[in-house]
């Protein structure tokens, strides 16, 4: 049984949601593998540099039953998205928005809880600010595959190391990935993920890595 102040706070949030003025910092469901690194929040924008991380960010809200959209992603790997937990029944893609990618993204922010966008050109801070107002109003999050001005968290994947593949034998089986989350000027959070893990699951717990530590070489990887 929750205490009375908690209950009141909870009810206030729900009332606010009904009144269509979602508190912009409301947390959204996040993929468990990224749990210690980044927490998706409504109204914020995120930048990633890898398709897998972008799909993983879509997967969190999608698992929780929200709609997702991807704009300008003509190389959407549907099978990988499903493996990460994206529900394809609630995904819309606009693979080729051309010059109108910003308008399309703004329209889809009304529809989807999380919108992945790969900008066709440079994003001006004014355009980003306009979109951010819309994100806050709709309680949606924006994931940009590429650079985005003034984004909340910048996720980068580095030092991928594949296991299971040799010189002409085996096949790609699992990958160790060093993920770094930079949030403003705060020291970056880092984690080593098995993404995917040996058993083809994508939900392995990450181990935080000290900023200065060196990644140990993984066996079976050249």
């Amino acid at each position: 049984m929750a205490s009375t102040p908690d209950l009141i706070a909870d009810l206030r949030t729900r009332m606010a949601r009904l009144e269509d003025s979602t508190p912009s910092s409301m947390p959204l469901a996040t993929h468990p593998a990224l749990a210690g690194l980044v927490q998706l929040r409504a109204g914020a924008s995120y930048s990633v540099d890898s398709a897998t991380l972008a799909l993983a960010l879509l997967a969190g809200p999608s698992r929780a039953g929200s709609w997702c959209a991807a704009v300008g992603v003509s190389d959407f790997g549907a099978e990988a998205a499903v493996a990460l937990g994206v529900d394809l029944d609630r995904v819309v893609l606009v693979p080729d928005p051309g010059e109108q990618w910003l308008e399309v993204t703004a329209a889809l922010v009304d529809v989807a809880t999380v919108v992945l966008v790969r900008p066709a050109g440079r994003v001006t801070p004014q355009a980003a600010e306009k979109l951010a107002a819309r994100l806050r109003k709709r309680g949606a999050a924006l994931v940009c595959w590429g650079e985005w001005p003034r984004c909340e968290v910048r996720l980068t994947a580095s030092e991928p190391a594949w296991a299971g593949v040799g010189q002409g034998h085996g096949h790609l089986r699992s990958r160790r990935l060093l993920v770094e989350a930079r949030r403003g000027t705060a020291p970056p959070r880092r984690g080593a993920l098995w993404f995917p893990a040996e058993d083809q699951s994508w939900v392995s717990e990450h181990r935080p890595v000290e900023p200065a530590s060196v990644v140990a070489p993984v066996e079976g990887v050249a």
Binding site: S50, S74, G77, A78, E79, A80, A83, H171, R173, P196
Partner: peptide, 12 residues
């Protein structure tokens, strides 16, 4: 067909 994991980027 290629065994999993599936590639995250599939070029049209």
């Amino acid at each position: 067909s290629i065994p999993p994991p599936a590639p995250a980027r599939v070029f049209a």
